[in-house]
Design a binder for these strands. Sequence first.
DNA 1: TATGAATGAGTATTCATTCAT
DNA 2: AATGAATGAATACTCATTCAT
Lengths: 211, 211, 211, 211
Amino acid sequence: MARTIGSNGARTAEAIRQAGVKLIYRHGYEAMSLRQLAAEVGLQSGSLYKYFDNKQSLLFDIVREHMADLLAKAEADLAGIDDPMARLKAFSAFHLRYHMQRMAHVFIANMEIRSLDDDHRAMVVGLRRRYENLLEDTLREGAQAGVFKITEPKVATYAIISMLTGICMWYRPGGRLSQDQLVDIYTGLVVDGVTGPQGVPVKADKHRALV
Amino acid sequence: MARTIGSNGARTAEAIRQAGVKLIYRHGYEAMSLRQLAAEVGLQSGSLYKYFDNKQSLLFDIVREHMADLLAKAEADLAGIDDPMARLKAFSAFHLRYHMQRMAHVFIANMEIRSLDDDHRAMVVGLRRRYENLLEDTLREGAQAGVFKITEPKVATYAIISMLTGICMWYRPGGRLSQDQLVDIYTGLVVDGVTGPQGVPVKADKHRALV
Amino acid sequence: MARTIGSNGARTAEAIRQAGVKLIYRHGYEAMSLRQLAAEVGLQSGSLYKYFDNKQSLLFDIVREHMADLLAKAEADLAGIDDPMARLKAFSAFHLRYHMQRMAHVFIANMEIRSLDDDHRAMVVGLRRRYENLLEDTLREGAQAGVFKITEPKVATYAIISMLTGICMWYRPGGRLSQDQLVDIYTGLVVDGVTGPQGVPVKADKHRALV
Amino acid sequence: MARTIGSNGARTAEAIRQAGVKLIYRHGYEAMSLRQLAAEVGLQSGSLYKYFDNKQSLLFDIVREHMADLLAKAEADLAGIDDPMARLKAFSAFHLRYHMQRMAHVFIANMEIRSLDDDHRAMVVGLRRRYENLLEDTLREGAQAGVFKITEPKVATYAIISMLTGICMWYRPGGRLSQDQLVDIYTGLVVDGVTGPQGVPVKADKHRALV
DNA sequence: TATGAATGAGTATTCATTCAT
DNA sequence: AATGAATGAATACTCATTCAT
């Protein structure tokens, strides 16, 4: 049946949002149809329009809220930590834990950016930029302080975030390694990566050109 | 008219393939319509079926060929390099250069795996696995030899590949940093990451649980 | 506009069914397009899918319902008639009347069996088999009782049913002969055919072989 | 390969015709594609147009030639037989044998008449009319001579032809009954049907009206 | 709050047919 | 005699969206 006794709009809205996350995660935004979504929450597809203006705005809501949440939690987590190394470790640990616990949201936010309208995408990219800056500023400070041996903080930021985010591609709860262990391993790679003797850069071998 | 003077099957096939890569890269596989693709190469959409069986097989062809090429070139590049550290650097440099030069193909192969049929996906994932093993085996050997301080070669493999592949998300030719410089920077992070004192893992701070 | 005033799902469903019978009868299942069908009932072609899953299921519904109706009515008509001759006459009369009154349905059920999917066809053929058995059993009983001079009840069944069904190929309401008269004529041929001195079969002349 | 050494146009034309009969018999005219047909004879579909003007004319050729052949052979078979009863038996035997030996052609001619253009259909129906007249005239003469007890020769003609033609619906070579036996059985039904005491028609029972 | 009927534009795909070579 | 590249119109079917009820 479509309607549980005692159900109400807020409950339905939340159900739609969750089903949306699930289906977009599983099939992709373009491939998910509103009919599927409606079926998942026990509605007719036309009824969804009580809860959003159109399919695009559903995606935008999910992505924007996720990004805002990510940013807010990260800022809260780092608040009061001043030492660059401590901030780096805290950022890494936070990022990993968040990504392991919110894999679907994270995946959607990364994959479906190109499905957003230009305006929506710009807004989301802005939030992402602010999030990345948390790390970039830390790296920059640590580099200036001499504790991080990096010459290009922006490149390092991208590199580190890509590495950490990649955990979503393979992590599954209940695996051999606990979340704590994974945090240790990844964070170790990050810390060692930015504290090693990189200041004397490896000389790039000239490889045969790719066709 | 039946045939444009000078038209040529092989030429058309190549044009379709290139336009396919371009449009899938830009809009995503689901979002690209065959009408768009046909317009891009100056055909009626029905005429595309002289060149592939269906939309799915176009995607599969592009992805499989890319993965096979990536694997073959990597194997060729590493052939004869035995020292783990040298292999690691060579792999990193190869991966980065390949990804900077073939961004669209790489992006498609990473993003559209979920748009592949089960069988096709399995085949592509198999190729990817073989590619990842090039790195994983190297890490494992280096770890046994004591030159890499890593305890989980598989995790490190995923982490490193994610980091290196991430260059596609922001690199644009003609930027401030040359490809050689980027290879140095990223490879430095990788090498330092796996040679640092990670064997004594950073103790994970317990952060507040995420909701 | 979303909805024509006074429109009604059940009414539309029935209109689609009737238009479907009419168009399949006139043009054949393969030759009838859903656009034609939609135009006939005043809808957009996509809207038809509120009423059936696909074109095939429309055909199947029509054919199955017809066969089930034919079988049920025949069984009801013959119920309580035990004498083989009376049953034969009753079957013949029923079959003729039904076929004169439901020419389109009958024609479709006979002609479009090959357009059905394997499973659907099997189900329809099963119903047809049960219908034919009503006649075959009667012929067999009459033959055992000595009232019908036939040696091959199954062949006689096919022969009689083909003969009777053939009325659909030329009968048009309002012709010179009434339905009652046609029932008399055809039934006379049937009865005489199975009561004549066939037990001493005509010796087949050997004709020149056909190429 | 598409071309056998020494093949020539006439051979190809015949191959196309035979493949056409086979495929139309199996799938129906509408459902058979020229691509299928071309593949069956090892050509590109465009090459078929060396051998016919269009799909419709292929069908027409097959059906017309079949009808002309049927008519010619029937006329030849009946030539010189004057006695109505002998003519009836000869017609029945001829019709049955022809239909058992040329099932595909016969089936196509009966089923695909509606797929013919108006002009083509008219021509084919004309040939069929002449064929039916062979029987109708015989029945009429026999009735006047008092040997056939029928009041409506035209109706009897349709009835008999439908009955005899129906053998195509179930006959398969190699079955329990030989062609000769089937000729005996069917012809027995026909002869008995038209010689029985039908002149005093069975009074039609009034059955409940069909809905 | 939700339904259910409908739209209209879109999708991938197939078709008979053409014609330069 | 046949190819192979292409057309243009058609097909069945899906989609996001609307709106009277």
